[in-house]
Design a protein around this nucleic acid. Structure first.
Length: 284
DNA sequence: AACCAGGGTGATG
DNA sequence: CATCACCATGGT
């Protein structure tokens, strides 16, 4: 059997690791609305908590440099997280047969789908409903500071565990100022903790069943379920329909996405979402 | 089946 | 300063 060459290469540089791959922009990937725990700390430098670890990264001319990272650790935890084993270049070339997709991709060709923690993604998108990004980030950061674990030698906190939140009440969540969403977070934690919902099956079960499974949680509707499937379960064909995408679809794709996007609707969605929001800015 | 609360903030005019 | 919008959802 022929083995396809990997779409990335890893180069250790002292204690750091340089990741060389096409279509990988930190700015575009970490600031496109799929993740809420990353912040820019300097020119082209980002940091954010992933699992138990504070990641620090820098965009350079050669690629993306991960600070204090070994090949072994990176292969274990972050290839999948940044979807590096997926051939973005080929998909982009195919999508570019469509003129609108071509423009959208050229606008932000370095967006990559993340595979985030499922529980964290469920909470984050429950919090996102009817909300703006600065406040979403504020609520999540208060959530972590109040109920997460402090990460050694940093001022950062892990995302709170399911079991810890399942034992709380809505009143306990008052300090995070999530408003009416607090009761949904508690409901999600309890249903996951008592195994009414099995997160591990979401990646493999038929996607309609996965949607139904997630929507057992109060406060999780079609939109939030779709975000969870796309941003934490590698379901490339999940397609979150928010106000922006509805607008794009109505104006640019009244008959649906081009055939090249089949089975990768979610990735197309990321380009279109970014594009839609930028067009709006240009008009003002 | 349309409509609205809920809680707070950022953006717009 | 007022008003609107916000990567929605559940309840009426």
């Amino acid at each position: 059997m022929d083995k396809k060459p990997l779409p990335y290469s890893l180069v250790e540089q002292n204690n750091d690791l340089l990741v060389i791959t096409p279509c990988f922009s930190l700015n575009e990937t970490l600031d496109c609305g799929q993740a809420f725990r990353f912040s820019p700390i300097d020119d082209n430098v980002w940091q954010g908590v992933v699992g138990m670890r504070l990641l620090k990264m820098k965009q350079t001319d050669d690629g993306v440099l991960f600070f204090n990272m070994s090949i072994a650790e990176f292969e274990k935890d972050y290839i999948d997280y940044f979807t590096l084993d997926f051939d973005y270049k080929s998909l982009q070339n195919s999508l570019k047969n469509d003129e609108t997709m071509k423009k959208a991709i050229e606008f932000a060709s370095g967006i990559r789908l993340l595979k985030q923690d499922k529980w964290e993604t469920i909470c984050s998108f429950i919090i996102s409903q009817n909300n703006n990004i600065p406040r979403i980030k504020g609520i999540i950061s208060r959530f972590c500071e109040n109920f997460g674990e402090k990460i050694e030698n940093t001022n950062e906190y892990t995302f709170p565990s399911v079991s810890k939140i399942a034992a709380l009440t809505v009143e306990d969540l008052a300090p995070i100022r999530a408003g009416f969403r607090a009761k949904y977070i508690i409901d999600a934690a309890r249903k996951i903790a008592n195994c009414e919902i099995n997160l591990n099956l979401l990646e493999t079960m038929p996607i309609d069943e996965a949607r139904a499974e997630l929507m057992k949680i109060k406060g999780v509707g079609a939109k939030v379920a779709e975000c969870v499937l796309l941003f934490s379960c590698k379901r490339f064909n999940a397609f979150p329909l928010d106000v922006w995408i509805k607008r794009v679809m109505a104006v640019l794709y009244p008959n649906g996405l081009p055939k090249e996007a089949e089975q990768h609707e979610g990735i197309a969605q990321q380009y279109l979402f970014h594009y839609a929001r930028s067009i709006k800015l240009e008009n003002e």
